[in-house]
Design a protein around this nucleic acid. Structure first.
Lengths: 338, 338
DNA sequence: TTGAAAGCGCTAACAA
DNA sequence: TTGTTAGCGCTTTCAA
């Protein structure tokens, strides 16, 4: 079955190819009757536009590039998944660029892939684009939306990491904890948007607001993994009883789960002897009964898509937007033993 | 900076656009000297081909579609990640279609997206394409490679699930276990390629080869998640001591980890009182000391890409290929107590 | 080995 | 509201 072109449809519908194009794309005026005839003809012939021809002629590709640092973390796949669904819905394709591995891939993606006129716009997830990268995209008139933190000159979808950390810490304070440890992200993860720093800052602010001084002995860094959280927690929980925290706020659920496992391995009960709060609402949080501050990465992805589509349609640059988060109290937190 | 077209490059290099095209694409004969002049001119002008124009004229898009059932499982993101890297390397783009959600998305993807001449070929991961879907793609002369199981008429990258299960079970048998339970995949996960059934079959074959009869009381199904594995294991471990298995073979690492956690919660020591083996070599397997049969999804993704590129270049249909797996013995398995 | 020229299949001015 | 027509920017015959 050779593929059908617009002219066959035009012939069958008894109109010109221009009218077929207008009827099917919805741009330009077409009478209802004509439109219907064209649609019937197109369906009849199983006609689908050639996106290349269409893109070449119109300059629009109906394709969005999504840039991610890595693929194998819950947050990123969730964002991706939300973006994919939203795009599919809107009739757009999603071209994926994950930058795992060497930095040369990043250059390659920018210098060759994005410049080939393949995408109408770009979503950059947790990537701090350099000014050059941003201006490269601006020159090409490609709208960009960032997810995860501010990029100068680019509208961004993000969450208030300080407020999240404050909320988590305040939950522990409200339960009566006064010795609250923190497992944060190591500085090398601070590169993009200072998420670790901000979460630590929120934690410290909440402590100070409760007249407690942050104690560096019960603040540790890890790499956002379960294993890293486990190791960091062992350090914290190995302190002499008086210094040992009665609660831990971890900057991610995976680290929080590591902390719960570490407590168990040390013979400490969660939550009886240690309360734990995370951030994310990871798939496993429910299973472990982990109290956490949920963020909604799928919605973040979907929201970025809607901003981008809005900008593509209206041409109006979009504003930053702050996304929701929400404390989910489960069974890993309880008031400290007297 | 307006984007530069092929004719500017041609002018600067003092040749025709045809020669520029040949020099830059590598198809057609160009003298070394000319080629170099063209390359210098192109670099000078920051010229990048318009992929739409190129695709329209040539019929090739240098873009591969990857179809996945869901994004948020380790296996799929690992395959995707491997495929992405391999494609980037080869200068191809990857367009992602994850079919999460309603079945209507699947139809939409097939009827609209794949038919728009956007992709040169398709990789279908753990999706049993229907004969109609396959012939649709064949009609369009789009090569397809499957990952994860046989699709009639489509070359496939897969692993021998029976052999994997046999290997895992034999490891337990070799340690001296005779009462070996199994946590398999529920039948609803059997839809694509009967992976659960095959792993159970391998398990049973290994038992029979050791003159042991499979005992349905110690075979449970779950949903491949940690939580599912946890619940299934609780059932198995709650049996009266004589019936209770001394070892469990779980069809995935996530379920195996659930089983380990269930044992702990019941006060049973792993491996002292229960040995556990999984399949995958998930990120967390090392952390939990889980003995497992590693499969290599990144390599599977990369291999599928190389098959596809080979087919695109040579036109020769590819053969199925079986991928490696490997027993990784850690600390979750030990000989049973006498 | 190179160039001239004819499209690839569609969209968007423009005119009617 | 519709049709005519001129490209979009490249690749690929074909001829030299």
């Amino acid at each position: 079955m050779a593929s059908v072109g617009i002219s066959e449809v035009a012939r069958l519908a008894g109109v010109s190819t221009a009218t077929v194009s207008r009827a099917l794309s919805g741009r330009g005026a077409v009478s209802a009757a004509t439109k219907q005839r064209v649609e019937i003809a197109a369906a009849e012939l199983d006609y689908v536009v050639s996106s290349n021809a269409s893109s070449l002629a119109s300059g629009r590709t109906r394709n969005i590039g999504v840039l991610l640092p890595v693929l194998d973390r819950w947050y990123f796949t969730s964002v991706l998944s939300g973006a994919q669904r939203a795009l599919l819905h809107a009739g757009y394709d999603l071209t994926l660029y994950s930058l795992d591995g060497s930095g040369s891939e990043r250059t390659q993606v920018f210098e060759h892939f994005l410049l080939r006129q393949r995408v109408d716009a770009v979503i950059a997830v947790s990537l701090e684009l350099s000014p050059q990268e941003v201006s490269r995209l601006h020159e090409l008139r490609k709208p960009v939306v960032g997810i995860g933190g501010p990029i100068p000159g680019v509208p961004t979808v993000s969450i208030d990491d300080i407020a999240i950390a404050t909320l988590a810490t305040e939950h522990l304070l409200a339960l009566g904890h006064t010795r609250i440890g923190h497992i944060g992200g190591a500085p090398e993860f601070d590169a993009d948007f200072h998420l670790p720093r901000q979460r630590q800052q929120g934690y410290e602010e909440a402590l100070r607001a409760a007249d407690l001084a942050p104690d560096p002995r019960i603040i540790r860094n890890a790499d956002f993994t379960t294993e890293g959280g486990y190791r960091a927690a062992k350090q914290l929980l190995g302190l002499p009883a008086r210094e040992r925290p009665t609660a831990i706020f971890a900057a991610s659920d995976e680290m929080a789960i590591g902390a719960m496992l570490a407590a168990r391995d040390l013979g400490l009960e969660v939550p009886g002897e240690l309360s734990v709060v995370g951030v994310d609402d990871h798939d496993l949080a429910e299973f472990f009964g982990l109290t956490t501050v949920a963020q909604f990465p799928r919605e973040q992805g979907a929201h970025a898509v809607s901003m981008l589509l809005e900008e593509l349609e209206s041409g109006a640059p979009q504003l930053d937007s702050l996304m929701q988060f929400e404390l989910r109290v489960r069974s890993s937190t309880i008031r400290p033993r007297p």
